[in-house]
Design a protein around this nucleic acid. Structure first.
Lengths: 154, 154
DNA sequence: TTGTTTGCAAACCTTTTGCACGTTA
DNA sequence: TAACGTGCAAAAGGTTTGCAAACAA
C-alpha cells in the first residue's frame, strides 16, 4: 500500500459549492455578488489557492471584486470549516474546499519551484488518528507537508 | 506505542550551538556579534521561535540587534539546514535548531490560544518514510501539524 | 427600512533589500 | 586592505480594518 498522487482529486466541485451555499444560508448570511464569486472560484480549484490567486482568478472572468471581500469571505468560510487552510511555507495562506465526506489529502511542496501537489495515503491517516488519540490535546485537524524536489526539479 | 509529549526536548542545546558554529566556520563565515546572539538565542529555545521573538529575546538581554541581522542569520542557518522552519498557520515563520542526530518532533497547535507543543512518535516517522518512498518526488523533509484545543482551552 | 455586504484606501505586520559604516581575517 | 557583517531606513508583500456607499431581505 503506497501513497498515490491524488489524480482523482476534486476537479470542479458543484457538490461542495451547493453545500457551502446551504451552510451560509442556514447561518443567516445574505447572498452577495463578491461572496458568490469567491465560492465559485474555490469550487473550480483542484488544489489549494491563495487569496491573491482567487482574486486574480475572479478578475480574469471580468467581474472586478475587492480584495478585502476575498479575504472576508475566506475568513467566513474558514470559520465555518467549509474551507481548509494550508501553509506551504512561503508565507502565504492557501485554502481549499473541505470535502463534506471527510476525504482530504496532503501536500508535496517543491522547495525549488514552489509547486504544490496533492497526495493521499490511508496508512498515514490511520497512524495520525492513532497519534491524535494518544496525546493530551483535542485534535480537530491535521496537516502533513512533505518538502523536497519535484519530478522536474529533482 | 503512543505519542508522548516531547518533554525531553532540547532544553538548552550547547551541543547544537557548537555544531552550528563549527558548520559556519567550515563554510567560511566570520564571527559577528549579531549572528552569535541569534545562535545563542536559538540554542536556548525549547521549541520553535519566530524572528520577532528571537529579536525580542536578544533585546531583553540588553544587547540591541538589528532585526535585519536576525532575518539574515536565520536565512543563513536555514540554508545550511542548521535550523528547521515550522509553519504553525498564523502566517509567521518559526524556526528551531535541527538536531545533528536527526531527532526531531512535530507540533500540536492550539487554535484558541495559539500555544505550540511538541510531540514525537516513532510510528508516525516510520509511516511518513514509507509514504515518502512511494511518491514520485524526492522528499527531503516533512512537517506534521495537529490542530485543535490544548489542555487549558479544551 | 434595517442590517449586511462591498469596495476603496489606509493601516498593519512580517520579511526583504539598499546602502553606508564597522569589523574580521 | 579586501571581503564580510551589521544596522538603519525604506520598500515590498500579504492581510486586516475603518468607513461610506450599495444592496438584500
Amino acid at each position: 500500500m503506497s501513497a498515490a498522487p491524488d489524480h482523482h482529486h476534486h476537479p470542479a466541485s458543484p457538490i461542495w459549492e451547493a453545500h457551502a451555499r446551504a451552510a451560509l444560508a442556514a447561518q443567516g448570511s445574505r447572498a452577495g455578488g463578491a461572496r458568490d464569486r469567491v465560492i465559485a472560484a474555490l469550487a473550480e480549484q483542484d488544489c489549494c489557492a491563495s487569496a491573491q490567486e482567487i482574486h486574480a482568478q475572479i478578475a480574469a472572468t471580468g467581474r472586478a471584486t475587492g480584495i478585502a471581500s476575498v479575504y472576508r469571505t475566506l475568513e467566513l468560510l474558514h470559520g465555518l470549516a467549509l474551507i481548509t487552510r494550508i501553509d506551504t511555507g512561503d508565507g502565504v495562506a492557501r485554502f481549499e474546499p473541505t470535502h463534506p465526506d471527510g476525504a482530504h489529502h496532503h501536500h508535496l511542496v517543491c522547495d525549488s519551484c514552489g509547486s504544490v501537489e496533492a497526495f493521499h495515503d490511508e496508512a498515514l491517516e490511520t497512524t495520525i488518528h492513532t497519534v491524535a488519540d494518544g496525546v493530551d490535546f483535542r485534535v480537530d485537524a491535521h496537516d502533513v507537508v512533505l518538502r523536497g524536489a519535484c519530478r522536474d526539479c529533482r
